[in-house]
Amino acid sequence: MADTSARRIAEFIEPLRVKPGSKVDLAEDFDPRYKAHLTKPEGVELLKAGVALLAEYQARLAAQDTYGVLLCLQALDAGGKDGTIRHVMSGVNPQGVKVSSFKVPSAEELDHDYLWRYARRLPARGDIAIFNRSHYEEVLVVRVHPQVLDRQRLPGAPHGKALWKRRYREINDWERYLTDNGFKVVKVFLNLSKEEQRARFLKRIDLPEKNWKFSAADVRERRHWDDYQKAFSEMLSATSTTWAPWYVVPADRKWFARICAAAVLAHTLMEIDPQYPTVGAEVREELLAARRELEREAPEGAPADPYEADHPGTGPGRSPQ
C-alpha cells in the first residue's frame, strides 16, 4: 500500500518538477491555472488524505531523529504562501515544525555573509523547517532591486551575470552540503498569474478584514512583474538539481496549490522512509520487567493492562516492531 501511494504521489508531482539542467521559461512551460483534471471537492478530500499522511511520516521522522527536512516556499506577493503553510501543516505536531519568514535583513545580518541568517534557521534532525521566502531572495529581490545589493558591502564583487552565476553555484553547493549531511531540501515555487494577483490585491482592499494584508508597496513591486518573471525563470533553470529539485506549483487555484505542496512534501518524506527505532534484547527485558511491575499495581477488578485488554496481541509475547 505504501509503495502504491508513493508511486501515485510521484506521478502526480512529476509534471511540476523542474528537470535538472533544463532551461525554464515560466510563461511557456508552466500554466498557473493547471489543475490535473481534478474538481475542488475531489481536491478537498485529497488534501485531507495528504495531511494525514504527513502527520504519520512526521512522527516517524521525529522518532528516528536522523534526517531533517527544509521546505522552501517562494512566490510573488499574494501567491498563497501563508495559506499553504496553514493548510498543509494543519495536522502535524507543531513541536516538530518551525516556520521562518525573512524580511529586510537587519544590520547584524548584513554584517555576515548572505546565507548566514538562513543557516541559523535550519531544522534540527527529526524536524521540519519551513522558509516563508528563503535564501532565494538573494537572487530574486536583490537582482530586481540592485540597491539592496549595495547594502551587503561585498568587497570587489562582480556585478551583473557573473554575480548571479556565482550565487547560483554557491547556493547549489550549500544545498548539496545540507543533503549530504542528512537534511533534505525541497523547494516549491507558487506560480501565480498576473491577473490572479490583481484580483487578490483588490480583494484585500475590498474586504476590511483583509486590509492589513495589503500595502501600497505591493502595487509598486507589481510594476516589476516582467523582471521577476525573468529572475524566477533563470533561478529555476540554474538551481533545480538532482539533490534539491524545484517544483513549480500552479497557484491560481488555492485548493490545488495546497494539494501539490502537500504531495511534494509527502514525496520527500516517503523517499526518506523514516522508521520508528527498535530496542535491543536488554532494553526489551527492562521494558517487560517494568510492565510486570505496573500490572501488579492494577486495582481490584481492573485489567492488568488496559491497553492490551482493548488491543489483544500487544502483550509480552508480541514481536518488537
Rank of each mutant, 00 (worst) to 15 (best):
Y136V: 10
I272Q: 09
V144A: 13
S101N: 10
H135F: 07
S101T: 15
Q95P: 00
E14S: 10
G83R: 03
D273W: 02
T242P: 05
Y57F: 14
L149V: 01
M1S: 15
F131R: 07
R8D: 11
L47S: 06
K161W: 01
L178Y: 15
A157K: 07
K98D: 08
A129M: 04
P316H: 06
A289T: 08
R296Y: 00
M270A: 11
V148M: 07
K187A: 00
M235I: 05
M1T: 13
A52E: 15
P316G: 08
T278Y: 00
E109I: 11
E221C: 02
A6C: 08
S233W: 02
P277Y: 03
D29F: 01
P94D: 08
R198N: 10
N132P: 10
R125H: 11
R17T: 12
K254Y: 11
A289V: 11
E170L: 09
Y168V: 04
E196D: 10
H112G: 08
K81F: 12
D3W: 01
D310V: 14
R167C: 04
L53H: 04
I85E: 01
H145T: 13
S5K: 14
L73H: 13
R153E: 13
V97D: 02
R143T: 12
L115G: 02
E293A: 14
R7L: 13
H311E: 06
P158T: 05
L202W: 06
Y34R: 14
G50Q: 08
W246K: 11
E56G: 05
G313F: 05
R120H: 11
E209G: 04
L46V: 12
P274L: 06
F30G: 02
R125G: 00
A157G: 07
F30N: 11
G160Y: 01
L76M: 15
L192P: 02
Q152D: 01
E308T: 13
C260E: 01
T239M: 08
A266L: 08
V88W: 10
P105C: 04
C260Q: 08
I272L: 15
L207Q: 15
Y57I: 02
H267L: 01
D150I: 09
A55K: 12
T239W: 01
L16I: 03
F232R: 05
S90P: 11
E196G: 07
E297F: 09
K48E: 14
F30D: 05
A6T: 15
R222Q: 15
L154S: 06
E11R: 14
D206N: 15
R17C: 02
E282L: 03
H145F: 09
L70T: 14
S233N: 04
A263L: 03
V88T: 05
P32C: 02
V69Y: 00
Q64G: 05
K19N: 04
A75T: 04
L288W: 03
E137A: 07
A49L: 13
T278K: 12
E42P: 02
L70W: 00
D31E: 09
T268P: 07
V283C: 00
N132A: 09
D31P: 14
E293T: 11
D3R: 08
D31S: 11
Q152E: 08
S319I: 09
K103D: 11
D25M: 07
E170A: 07
D310C: 10
I272Y: 04
R204C: 03
S319C: 00
E300P: 02
